[in-house]
Design a protein around this nucleic acid. Structure first.
Length: 305
DNA sequence: AAACAAGGCAACCGCTTCACC
DNA sequence: TGGTGAAGCGGTTGCCTTGTT
């Protein structure tokens, strides 16, 4: 049977929108609203597919959209919500007035994902990579655990050596020309120190994370004096892991999936979160409450560079 | 200055869900 | 109750800009 295509593909324009097209669409919608996207391009005098018009309007032309940089608060909100609902961009965008799901998705893929990885946190599970390794290790026999640890250290070592040797070459080139600044001398010292520390870790019989494998409450202090990455610092006194209770809550409760938890909250609030329609772009009531969010990260959970 | 790589984002694609008949 | 079109949604692509070599 098949479905009738929403438009004649041969007769529609594709690609970037021109200012004239934007004007036509905006003024038509200002007069007639957004009923029936199939008719809008025809009535507005546009050679575009209705779907294309809808996307252009919702993602770019709508007057209530924000177009600037994401604020720190917005970024933190995205990360927190992503840890709860995953890639449900419309739900996340609904909590950020003026942002679209496309905005949020792009920002996540281009910036936030990398930021989290750089902090040693897996952007999919929101758990530290080391913790994931420990989880995997619990399913293995001791000899396999040793191999796993070795492989993990090997990967880390290769990565670090690549970075360090690259940096080292750069600095040595400069050193030969005798124009090293104090700052650059400091960098060389730091790099040497890291190398020494790494070599210690690699030859240790037990990796510093070993105690994670031994008890339910790891000794976070054993990971060093906080877990630093750039200017982001995880130092919380060792009482709880720096990445928060929420990412751990599924395993602690042992049953609820992210959707289950979300659904529970939805029912509690009497809101319909089944699809994004009612909540899209934050125009309707929030299920996350006026104060913002259901779960709070520790104050040290700082994404900002 | 040119070539190349990487990042960022708008737009598209195709599947799913909703609403209506 | 099943069929159909419209709309929603997430993943992917492709182009433009910026940075690096």
């Amino acid at each position: 049977m098949g479905r009738i295509p929403c438009c004649e593909k041969d007769n529609v324009k594709r690609g970037q929108w021109t200012p004239e097209e934007d004007n036509k669409l905006s003024s038509y919608i200002a007069q007639h609203g957004t009923r029936n996207w199939r008719l809008i391009p025809k009535n507005a005098g546009l050679q575009r597919c209705g779907k294309s018009c809808r996307l252009r309007w919702t993602n770019y032309l709508r007057p209530d959209l924000k177009h600037g940089e994401f604020s720190d608060l917005e970024e933190q909100t995205i990360v927190k919500l992503h840890s709860i609902v995953g890639n449900r961009w419309s739900i996340i965008a609904a909590q950020l007035p003026g942002r679209t799901d496309n905005d949020v998705k792009n920002h996540w893929n281009t910036k936030l994902k990398r930021k989290l990885s750089g902090m040693g946190i897996d952007p999919v599970t929101h758990k530290p990579f080391s913790h994931l390794m420990a989880e995997i290790a619990t399913t293995l026999e001791p000899p396999q655990v040793a191999h796993l640890a070795e492989a993990a250290l090997g990967c880390f070592k290769d990565e670090m050596l690549h970075l360090l040797t690259k940096k080292r070459v750069d600095l040595q080139l400069k050193q030969s020309s005798l124009d090293l600044t104090k700052q650059e001398n400091k960098e060389i010292d730091s790099i040497e120190k890291i190398k020494v520390d790494m070599s210690r870790v690699i030859v240790q019989e037990q990796p510093p994370h070993y105690d994670m494998l031994q008890s339910n409450k790891p000794n976070w202090e054993s990971l060093g004096n906080g877990f630093e990455c750039g200017q982001s610092s995880f130092s919380n006194g060792g009482d709880f892991p720096p990445w928060d209770h929420q990412s751990m809550c599924s395993e602690i409760s042992g049953c609820a999936t992210r959707d289950d938890r979300l659904q529970g909250k939805i029912e509690e609030d009497g809101d319909d979160f089944g699809r994004g329609k009612e909540v899209r772009n934050g125009s309707s009531s929030t299920v996350f409450g006026s104060e913002g969010l259901l779960w709070d990260l520790p104050s040290d959970y700082d994404l900002m560079d």
